[in-house]
Design a binder for these strands. Structure first.
Lengths: 228, 228
DNA sequence: ACTAAAGTGAAAGTAATACTATCACACCCC
DNA sequence: GGGGTGTGATAGTATTACTTTCACTTTAGT
């Protein structure tokens, strides 16, 4: 397990943390419990103090690992993008056409819940809820530019880029591949958020199958309809 | 001017404020300056104290009008949805087919910058920036459910509903009209956010014309391609 | 012109948050 | 047995998000 952890961990941007959380038992417990706490009380309700109490440790100890709760959130979410990218490239290389690859990628994105999950200390379901409820907080903050400069979003951006390329190859005349892919990533979470909290805004329910159908149609239309 | 203001103001949900901001000079100054401050420092940087200083008044006076900065933000943004809805229905009734109506509505949504603007005390450009930078904060909060119950998002939801109906009429076989419309509303702002802060995620620039092209293609594909 | 009510400003206070700093202790590895 | 590394405990600061109270002024009603 340490091997797996280290393999993935080393691919995370070190600027996400002050001290590598997998380098110690406390670090692992912090990331594990932080994820559960985020899922439970949301981004606004999350404080280092609450987290410290749950772990029978102190705020100062947590601050040794993470600058603030915002970076901690980005750190947790980065695991999702990193793993998603790996799974996508693991599963699509068998397909030869970029189109088939893209559709397979969409399936994986929409059913990420059901994939194997290498980070044993991070609860998959909790991460999924956090992605739905709080992932937008990860980049819609007043520190976006700074954090972007530090490369904190590079995992997400790289994945976005790779899928854009596939879309471009599948639909050479479609002019907005990047915008389409980022829209899809956002949509996958926001539609689930709506399904839970603002159901008037969507016809989808929380089942990922429906979300998958929705975004598949989006892509399908890009590829088959070239009537601009 | 008071007449115009009152006409629109009365259509805003009174739960958005504790005391009607247009009922007094201070109230008007608060909403006016709050908008500018939001645009300047973002949601996180915004405090009632800063606002009070700018207005040469006190925090307690502001609290007489608004419960907290989050509701104040929703209050400001509600003006946009209300006015957008009115403009859309003013401009589309000349068209007979739901399809034409929908396309015209898209134009209006994407070029809302250039519409006349009835709220003289609220800076249109600042509101536009706030929509791009902070509008997601309006509903992605840990109080969504409560605020939704209070009807704070009803203007947005109603607009969403009306356009969904148009889309449904234009593309009777398309199964996800609501999801498509909410995706479009979100996209119009988020793609502009990306263009400014995370340009790797989009091929659009900030010009609303490009955003318009992008979402028009989305709708166009729904209507013309029925290959599900 | 007198009164009551409403609106505002000033000041103080509370609880919580987001940190930072210091020191003592335990442990583990040469 | 000494020197780092990791942790816990305590304390402290600045800021935020509010609430409360009181005094003052303007306004509205008769």
């Amino acid at each position: 397990m340490d091997l797996i952890l280290n393999h993935w961990q080393t691919r995370l941007n070190p600027k996400l943390f002050k001290k590598d959380p997998i380098s110690s038992d406390l670090g692992l417990r912090i990331s594990k419990e932080a994820l559960l706490l985020f899922a439970e009380v949301g981004f606004d309700g999350f404080t280092f103090k609450k987290l410290a109490e749950r772990l029978n440790t102190t705020e100062s100890s947590i601050y040794r690992y993470f600058d603030n709760k915002h970076r901690l959130l980005i750190y947790l979410i980065a695991h999702h993008w990193l793993w998603l990218e790996h799974q996508i490239y693991f599963h699509i290389h068998a397909f030869s056409s970029p189109e088939d690859q893209l559709y397979r990628a969409l399936e994986i994105i929409c059913h990420s819940d059901e994939l194997p999950w290498p980070f044993e200390h991070l609860d998959r379901k909790a991460l999924h809820m956090v992605l739905i409820d709080a992932s937008l907080r990860a980049y819609y903050s007043h520190e976006v530019d700074l954090e972007n400069k530090d490369g904190l979003f590079s995992d997400y951006k790289r994945l976005n880029h790779r899928l854009s390329v596939l879309l471009q190859q599948s639909a050479p005349n479609y002019p907005y591949p990047k915008a389409m892919i980022s829209t899809i990533f956002e949509t996958v979470h926001s539609q689930q958020f709506y399904a839970i909290h603002l159901p008037a805004l969507t016809d989808l329910n929380r089942s990922e199958g429906q979300v998958h159908q929705f975004v598949k149609t989006l892509i399908n239309n890009c590829i088959t309809c070239q009537n601009l």
